[in-house]
Design a binder for these strands. Structure first.
Ligand code: ZN
Ligand code: ZN
Ligand code: ZN
Ligand code: ZN
Lengths: 140, 140
DNA sequence: TTAGAATTTGCATATAATTGCAATTGCAGA
DNA sequence: TCTGCAATTGCAATTATATGCAAATTCTAA
């Protein structure tokens, strides 16, 4: 049977308290003082465990390492590929879509932290003022 | 200016021809015979480049390494966390949602390969026949 | 063509993440 | 409380991915 050990509890508590996205290393740095024996393997394994239990979520926002956060108020993100800004999307805006897909494909969706990439309004405008520069050999 | 080099072109061609999801290593193995000097660093850098150009897409389906594929017919996936099965979702089913979010947040969505995790119908039923087993200390 | 500038590649190295295994810890039952 | 089993952890080693830099390649324009 699986166990909620000291390491796992402290890691979860940290994410829950911080209420911020943290990388595995940030979690390690935050918990280490309270659990000096803590090892990076344990951090990785605990994060995987907590994710699997649905207590935290992990997201790759394309900049370096994946980030983890406690699952409390379900939400999602828009990540701008231009300025790297991360916006929050309320679950309310996504719910309907999930339900539709669930029904259509008879599939229960667990994903609770959707990451959508694209361009924010500012970056889109900035880009419109440049001529497209495709690699030459791919030009029509 | 960026260049469509031999390595990049062969890597893209491989993904385009195969029409399958491939890991970085599978791409390497497939291209190496035609370009013996090929190096894994180049594979990783080329895949990153092609992704950035929007020619291929990358997805982490939770099983081992990320997988790459040519962007041709836009589609998405449902990944069952029980049996690991990967279903295809037509873009038609997603389009409306993307448009709604785009308008609501004034954000141009580029994401073209959405991965949603959950449970397929079979695995959901299988699970319903088990008593939930939460870690003891988290029980209410 | 050919020279020169700019980009990309290979290689070596660094960093991130995973895994096998023995030691430790947590839990259930006596 | 104590005992014994099973799950977890630390550590070392492995694998996956990223990066600095010099050499090679590609492109441009003379
Ligand atoms: Zn978030
Ligand atoms: Zn932006
Ligand atoms: Zn796909
Ligand atoms: Zn399934």
């Amino acid at each position: 049977m699986s166990r909620m050990t000291t390491a796992r509890a402290l890691i979860y508590e940290t994410l829950e308290t911080t209420q911020e996205h943290m990388t595995a290393y940030q979690v390690f740095d935050a918990v280490k003082p309270r659990l000096p024996s803590l090892n990076m393997s344990t951090v990785y394994r605990s994060l995987e465990y907590l994710t699997h239990e649905g207590l935290i979520s992990v997201a790759d926002v394309g900049e370096g390492m994946p980030i983890y956060e406690a699952v409390s108020n379900t939400h999602h993100h828009l990540v701008c590929e231009g300025c790297k800004k991360i916006l929050i999307v309320e679950h309310e805006q996504v719910k309907g879509f999930f339900e539709k897909i669930s029904q259509e494909y008879d599939f229960t969706i667990h994903t609770n932290h959707l990451i959508l990439f694209g361009l924010c309004e500012k970056c889109r405008r900035a880009k419109e003022n440049q001529s497209e520069e495709l690699p030459k050999s791919l030009h029509p």
